[in-house]
Design a protein around this nucleic acid. Structure first.
Lengths: 132, 132
DNA sequence: GAAACACTTAACCCTTGCGTTAACTGTTTT
DNA sequence: AAAACAGTTAACGCAAGGGTTAAGTGTTTC
């Protein structure tokens, strides 16, 4: 008993959704688009005008944002309109919340352990020789 | 009068901190390390054992996490210990919160505008004629 | 119908990410 | 002192990111 289990992440969970969302957010141009789209839908050209680059370059950012699910786009006539999917940022919230929840759980467990075994000098690896 | 200002992002703010943090989170191996470190500090070798790759490859992930500020590391003897900097995830929260705050402000402003100008057929740029 | 518009695609650059193997440095252990 | 250990560096390969110019495509507009 009194084994302080170290969860062990396992063989690295593949979560391509998170990969795409975080990657999409890892660029100032794209964050800037998110920011701008918070004010309402806009055409690719209008958005591109605010970025210091050519249209084709900018288009790639739009495509990446689309792939991440952070924005949706549709084409009316010759203009492609981009719109924010506010819900999508939820996956980031969720991940963050989950991490924190786990930290807290572990901290709680550690505290219970320490309380239950006040004699343990708690150094070394992170568990070790406890019970008499 | 009654000009609905569209903020206009400006010339794309450079925020290298966010770039690094989001990029660091955009990989399952690195998220997995974050997750694992939530349970407490660990040596590079121990961490690497759970990832399906060689040590040198894994080390690069550690370096990237370090650069992002999400973890800190120190070397005692021949083992390098990694520790999570829980505070650092705050920059993500902050960014997220800021976006939402802005959306809400804009929504409020729009609602006030619509309420104050029920007659405005408000099309032209990108709004809409909804009400009957 | 011709011209102007608003993207799109293709082709190409250079840099960075992500993984590898091989060889090396500095600590323990034996 | 030699061997084992834990990490580190170097050199390399391939894919993807982030940018470019040049040349298309499909819509308006004149």
């Amino acid at each position: 008993m009194a084994k302080l289990s170290t969860p062990a992440v396992g063989p690295v969970p593949a979560e391509p959704e998170l990969d795409d969302v975080f990657l999409a957010l890892a660029d100032p141009t794209r964050r800037s688009v998110i920011h701008r789209l918070g004010a309402g839908p806009a055409g690719v050209g209008d958005l591109a005008a605010e970025a210091a680059m050519t249209l084709p370059s900018f288009l790639k950012h739009v495509r990446m944002l689309e792939r991440s699910g952070l924005i949706r786009t549709r084409k009316d006539g010759r203009v492609r309109t981009c719109e924010l999917d506010r819900e999508r940022l939820g996956v980031v919230d969720d991940w963050l919340a989950q991490q924190r929840r786990l930290w807290e759980e572990r901290t709680d467990r550690l505290e219970r352990f320490v309380t239950a075994n006040p004699d343990t000098g708690g150094h070394g690896t992170a568990d070790e020789r406890n019970e008499s």
